[in-house]
Simulated scan of single mutants.
Amino acid sequence: MPEPIPAPEARPDVERLRGYSAPLEGRRGLLRLDFNENTIGPSPAVTEALRSYPADQVAVYPEYDGLREALIANLQASPAGLAHPLTIDQVGLFNGVDAAIHAVIHAYGSAGDTLLTTSPTFGYYAPCAGMQGMAIEALPHDLPGFRFPLEAMRTALQRRPKILMLCNPNNPTGTRVPAEQVLELAAAAPGTLLVVDELYEAFTGDSVLPKVDFNVHANLLVLRSLAKTAGLAGLRMGFAIGAAGVVDRVSRVTGPYDVNSLAVTAAFAALGDQDYTDHYVAEVARARDYLVSQLTQSGAVFHCDGGNYLLVWPRRSAEAVEQQLRSAGILVRGMAGKPQIDGALRVSIGTLEQMQRFWTTYAQLES
Results as ranks from 00 to 15, higher is better:
H303T: 09
S327R: 13
P256S: 11
V259M: 13
T254H: 06
W313T: 10
A318L: 01
T254G: 00
A287Y: 08
V301Q: 13
A300T: 03
Y257H: 15
G272E: 10
D248L: 10
L262D: 03
E283Q: 14
F239T: 00
L271C: 04
T277K: 07
A267D: 01
A320G: 04
S327E: 15
I241Q: 06
S317D: 11
V281E: 05
T229V: 12
V312C: 05
F268M: 08
Y276C: 06
A328Q: 14
T265G: 04
S261A: 15
D278C: 06
G307C: 03
Y280F: 12
L235K: 13
T229M: 01
D273V: 09
D248A: 15
G307T: 05
L331V: 01
Y257M: 11
S327C: 04
A282D: 13
Q324S: 14
G231E: 04
V259P: 08
V312M: 01
G299Y: 10
G329A: 05
S251C: 14
P256D: 10
L310N: 00
A240R: 03
E322A: 15
A244H: 11
Y257T: 15
A269T: 12
A270C: 04
L271D: 05
L310T: 02
D248N: 14
G299S: 02
G307N: 02
V247N: 13
A285M: 00
R288D: 06
S261N: 11
A287T: 05
L331A: 04
D305R: 00
L325D: 11
